[in-house]
């Protein structure tokens, strides 16, 4: 049971960790000061959430592992984030598209996680869901703005949604640990979130005068540790200090 709970927490936390790292890469590189600050503030929220999850995971592991070890010292295949969040900051429309497709899921997920019969997880969810609703406002606002903007911004936003669409179905994929946690009343049954997810996404895309992608071919793997090539580069950046100076603290 403990192993399943540990894996389950990591699965949730890794999404926030990897997306937080991606957004952090925009620090000083955002398209404008306001969007730069917004992306890094969202990154900071996500890292804060990750700390709560990993502190709990470290407690469950009950060995020498600390929150930092869990964040920094795993191998690529041990990260269980969805493929969506590791996709690169190709351009601002991609950054916004990735954020939007994740935020709609993240808010729905945390709303349900508040009802977990695991007290710590439900407490973390109650804290995080309030922050995530600001993330969703930001990302959906920009999807609409770019969609309704110029023909160029509309085209780029459409391309981003089309390209990222293939990663959306994985949000509703369940690992063995996920299923066990649902059975025990700890985890969220993500399969129940799917139809609401797509209808919310559709509504906002319509408002943004964007087309809803028709492709029904979806990519999965991240939740089982099989990642796209992008994750390796991201991790080498994330883990550099800990690998170079093992056990360093700051």
């Amino acid at each position: 049971m403990k192993n399943n709970l540990y894996s389950y927490i990591l699965g949730i936390a890794d999404n926030s960790l990897i997306l937080g790292q991606r957004l952090g890469q925009l620090c000083g590189h955002g398209p404008s000061l306001e969007t730069d600050i917004a992306c890094t503030n969202i990154s900071l929220d996500l890292f804060g959430q990750v700390r709560s999850y990993f502190q709990y995971a470290a407690k469950i592991a009950g060995d020498q592992r600390t929150e930092d070890d869990i964040a920094m010292l795993r191998m690529e295949r041990d990260y269980k984030n969805v493929l969506l969040v590791e996709q690169p900051n190709t351009n601002f429309a991609f950054t916004i598209g990735r954020q939007f497709l994740f935020d709609v899921y993240h808010q729905a997920f945390l709303t349900e996680l508040q009802n977990s019969n695991d007290f710590t997880l439900s407490t973390i969810a109650k804290k995080c869901v309030k922050e995530v609703s600001y993330h969703l406002r930001f990302s959906s606002d920009w999807v609409k703005r770019l969609g309704n903007g110029t023909s160029v911004s509309n085209k780029k936003m459409q391309e981003a949604i089309d390209d990222l669409w293939t990663y959306t179905d994985e949000l509703f994929y369940q690992t063995k640990a996920d299923k066990q946690m649902v059975f025990e009343g700890i985890g969220v049954d993500v399969t129940n979130l799917k139809s609401n997810y797509y209808s919310r996404i559709n509504d906002i895309l319509l408002e943004a005068t964007l087309e809803i992608p028709e492709s029904q071919w979806f990519q999965t793997g991240g939740k089982e540790g099989i990642h796209s090539e992008h994750l390796g580069y991201l991790l080498s950046d994330l883990q550099y200090m800990q690998r170079t100076y093992p056990n360093m603290e700051w």
Binding site: I37, A38, I42, E131, F138
Partner: peptide, 27 residues
């Protein structure tokens, strides 16, 4: 901007005195 100098604030401007200022967001 919906995010200001810190995660808890949004950036506003006043159209009368033209000054920018922070607004503490509800949480």
């Amino acid at each position: 901007s919906q995010f200001g100098s810190t995660a808890c604030k949004a950036l506003f401007k006043c159209e009368d005195c033209k000054e920018p200022f922070d607004y503490f967001k509800c949480l």
